[in-house]
Amino acid sequence: MTNLRYNYFPGCSLERNAEAYHKSSMAIAGPLGLEFAEIDDWNCCGATEYISLHMLASYAIIARNLAQAARNSPDNGQASAHDLVAPCSACYLNLSKCDKYMRTDTDLAEKVNLALAAGGLSYKPGSVHVRHLLDVVVNDVGSSKIKAQVTRPLKGLRVAPYYGCLISRPGLRTDEHDPEYPTSLDDLLECLGAEVVDFPLKTHCCGGHMTQISEGTGFELIRQLVKGAADYHADMIVTVCPMCQLNLDAFQSAMNRYFKTTYHVPVLYFTQMMGLAFGQNAVTLGIGAELVDARPALAKIGVEVPPPPEAEGAPKRKRDDKSLPMPKMSKQADAATREAKP
């Protein structure tokens, strides 16, 4: 069987903050028969920031990536040859929106090409087909092939499928699906053996950059989502976007402090869940980089993740001698009480 080949646009987040997403995407590619070729010297898509300041320049920098991808097309003669895959929902939205607007607004296309020409490039609208990684996994690989790879079903794990806003929306997709209540990620996670929660907030926004602009606004959106998942007794939220992961995971403790709550809902990428179900090693999948500890949830499916180096050994108490007399528990007794808790 020949592999399906795609151009790949990782985006800035996947280089560092969401490296786990990149690692796990690469790890599942092999078993699924997917090959990804990173496009040459790509630049930032501008997220939601560039377009807030400059209209034409924002489309021009996005189009530079489309131009690079068009030059880079793997010539294997397959339908996927001109497909550009983005795992990041913001990159996916920007790239596909730019292509669509250039197709429908000839004035915009002309001006963007004038700008590109200054850098020795050009882009013919419609020559690159932008797709999100979830779409490729669900529609090009398909459930039967995915099921065939499952060696460690995610049995007993309750997951909240979280699509976020940007892949679900604005009719930019070629495959029409429900912009408010998609089910492809639900089906995929079921395929992996997980117990999928019917998550009503599945396409609600995580707030994007709002934590940096207005804490109250940003944290409230994070709270709703984390609470939503917790209310449905989900062991974890499964996401398809690095911005959603960052907000729900890295800002969860700050959100808890802000609202005086104690939520603990780990947030992993769908590619990590696939890798786990395929029996892959947790560390290869970048598991352990999340700030909300996913180990207790993963223990349910028998996955052991080595503890982070700084957590090894008990913390040293400086004031041991002078502190108030407190009952000290032996390690075994401590472990027993922990287990006894519901």
Partner: peptide, 28 residues
């Protein structure tokens, strides 16, 4: 957890990108 880079990364085609941005701003 290794999720923050301490130095920014610069693309190779920076000169070209700058020209594209400058031209786009001029057209705008």
């Amino acid at each position: 957890k290794g999720r923050m880079a301490f130095t920014p990364k610069r693309i190779q085609g920076m000169a070209g990108l700058k020209q594209i941005i400058a031209k786009a701003k001029e057209l705008e």
